[in-house]
């Protein structure tokens, strides 16, 4: 029993080395995730019951599923994610193709495209609320130059959510651009030379060389962008605060409001759990779709 094989020793050292990380992860990351499921089964729906552990079964979960504001916020989250993903995937690819061509000052131009990525959304929100101010901001001043009034942007019920999604996409652009650029640089140059000899134009090169080469990268980016699209609290809080009215109130804002303004901690926990399940299902479906596409 006590034989200390090289293998046994290796495994023991392995467990010792991963222990600090795993313990920190279990205590401060994993446990709170699971705790949320439990809170959803308890009755902590007022300030006095902050520590209550009365079991109420599925009451909170059912209440959430029957709540119209939850489904409204759910719809807003989906719309936000779709616009955010579409914008980032398209803009990331196009900008990467442009930045891959040689021109004077390319390095500096690339830096300019990356800077928004390292800035925080609260500061970005302050600036964009200024730029997009419907009556006094410089963006609508351009519209007035052409005699139009310009949209209400962040203060219009219709435009607020898409505008916020695009601004958040703008701020996240560098990640998609850098990833696409790295993949573009991996395309062997002789592919382009052959294409030039055969007289292929720019669009044909994109269609027959670039896109096939980039498909795995784009799928991977789509996965990451999808996951990031649900991390939207700061962008929405910084840009619209969920308004005007509730027109841009996404699930993360609803959770915050229900918990910290209305003190319905169990309801808010249940909302988080249900939305997490939705995210997991979407990811599963996407992974399925991806494997079907790849084995085509």
């Amino acid at each position: 029993m006590k034989k200390q094989s090289i293998h046994g020793g290796e495994a023991r050292i392995g467990y010792i080395l991963i222990a600090p990380f795993l313990i920190m992860f279990a205590v401060f990351k994993l446990y709170p995730m699971l705790y949320g499921i439990a809170v959803g089964f308890w009755d902590r729906n007022s300030e006095m019951k902050l520590m209550d552990t009365t079991f109420v079964g599925f009451d909170n979960y059912l209440a959430v599923l029957r709540n119209a504001s939850f489904w409204e916020a759910f719809g807003h989250s989906v719309v936000y994610s779709v616009i955010y993903i579409a914008f980032l995937m398209a803009a990331g690819f196009i900008v990467a193709v442009l930045l891959n061509r040689k021109f004077t000052g390319r390095t500096a131009v690339r830096t300019c495209f990356y800077i928004p990525y390292v800035t925080n959304m609260i500061a970005v929100g302050i600036v964009f609320k200024y730029l997009l101010n419907p009556s006094r901001g410089p963006v609508n001043a351009i519209f007035r130059l052409f005699g139009a009034d310009g949209p209400g942007w962040l203060s219009s019920p219709v435009m607020a959510l898409p505008t916020a999604a695009v601004i958040a996409g703008w701020a996240a652009l560098a990640f998609n651009v850098i990833t696409c650029l790295a993949a573009l640089q991996d395309i062997p140059t002789d592919m382009y030379e052959v294409a030039d000899i055969e007289g292929a134009g720019f669009w044909q090169k994109i269609r027959y060389i670039v896109l096939p080469y980039l498909t795995p990268t784009l799928f991977m980016l789509l996965t990451i962008t999808l996951i990031n699209s649900f991390r939207n609290y700061t962008a929405i809080a910084g840009l619209t605060g969920g308004g005007p009215g509730t027109s841009s109130k996404v699930v993360s804002l609803l959770i915050y409001d229900d918990a910290f303004n209305f003190m319905k901690f169990s309801i808010a926990s249940a909302e988080g759990v249900i939305f997490t399940l939705f995210i997991i299902i979407v990811n599963r479906l996407f992974t399925k779709a991806r494997s079907v596409w790849e084995s085509r």
Partner: peptide, 28 residues
């Protein structure tokens, strides 16, 4: 290093990356 459960633990850790801090803010 080789040790039992390495692949499973790593796969599990990666899977948790898809849970955004937004949905767990209340229990946290």
């Amino acid at each position: 290093l080789r040790f039992k459960g390495k692949g499973v633990i790593l796969a599990f850790l990666v899977a948790t990356m898809m849970v955004p801090g937004e949905t767990t803010m209340v229990p946290r």
